[in-house]
Each structure stands twice: as C-alpha cells, then as structure tokens.
C-alpha cells in the first residue's frame, strides 16, 4: 500500500536533497578553482573530468531546487516567486549600472561579473524576507 507523504516530510526530504547537491556542487567548484594550481598542476584530463563532475552536480542541484519549488504549497510558491522577481529586478538594475561604470570612467577596472552573483543572492534573500513579512 502506498503511504502518503505529509507536507513536512516532503519539505524535509527536499531540503536535505538540495543541501546535499549544493554542498557537492560547492566542493567540486572549489576543487575546480584551486585544484589545477595546487593539486594536479593543470593536468588537462583531470580538469576536464572535474568540469563534467561539476556540471553534473550543478544539474542535480537545479533539479533538486525545481522539485523543492514544485512541492511547496501555494503561498510558499508565491513567496518564492516574489523573492525571485525582486532578485531578477535588482540583478538587471545593478548589472546595468556596473556595466556602465568603466565606460563612463567612474572606475578604472572592469568589475568582475561574478560579483553579480552576490547581488542576486542577497536580493533574493531580502525579497523572500519581505514576502514572508507581508504574509506573516
């Protein structure tokens, strides 16, 4: 007989899954960033294998995140939607300004594009917090 999984059980399972895959993805990203220089002296085959492993972990992380969103209830989905909308908006606005800073000679060097990830992550957390407060 099939047992019904409660909402809390689903949430725990999905949270655990996303934590595991995100952790593995982070470890493989760190290995890819520092391994060639400090561990295997830029050995091409090892680096290529690690790129594949990193992409696989990234794919599993995206799938786990999608599953987490699908299993949320309607209000939690709406909260996530508002958080993502806020993060997308902030990212577009900040990325546009950062892209222009060097062109209009307000800064000397080109800003690292990966810093946009911080803007996205922080604005996503702020967006989620604002949406949660709205419905609390």
């Amino acid at each position: 007989m099939q047992t019904l999984e409660s909402y809390c059980d689903k949430e725990k399972r999905n949270t655990k899954s996303i934590a595991v895959w995100t952790g593995l993805w982070l470890i493989s990203t760190a290995a890819l960033a520092f391994g060639p220089k400090f561990l295997w002296d830029y050995h091409t085959v090892i680096s290529m294998v690690l790129v594949c492993v990193n992409l696989f972990f990234g794919y599993k992380m995206v799938v786990a995140n999608k599953q987490l969103l699908e299993d949320l209830d309607e209000l939690q989905q709406k909260i996530m939607f508002l958080g993502m909308a806020f993060a997308l908006g902030c990212t577009v606005v900040v990325a546009t300004v950062l892209g222009l800073l060097e062109a209009i000679r307000l800064v000397d060097s080109v800003i690292n594009p990966s810093s946009i990830l911080f803007v996205t992550g922080i604005s996503y957390l702020v967006g989620i917090a604002m949406a949660k407060r709205k419905y609390a």
């Binding site: 949320l72 209000l75 419905y135 609390a136």
Partner: peptide, 17 residues
C-alpha cells in the same frame, strides 16, 4: 497538506486560498 504559515495567513485574512 500546506504549511502552518499558510494557515496563519489565511486565518488572518492576509492570503486568499
């Protein structure tokens, strides 16, 4: 089969199901 936060929001009238 929803979160407790959803029940709180519906009861307070902050969210329409």
């Amino acid at each position: 089969e929803v979160s407790r936060q959803t029940i709180v929001a519906i009861e307070k009238g902050k969210y329409d199901p």
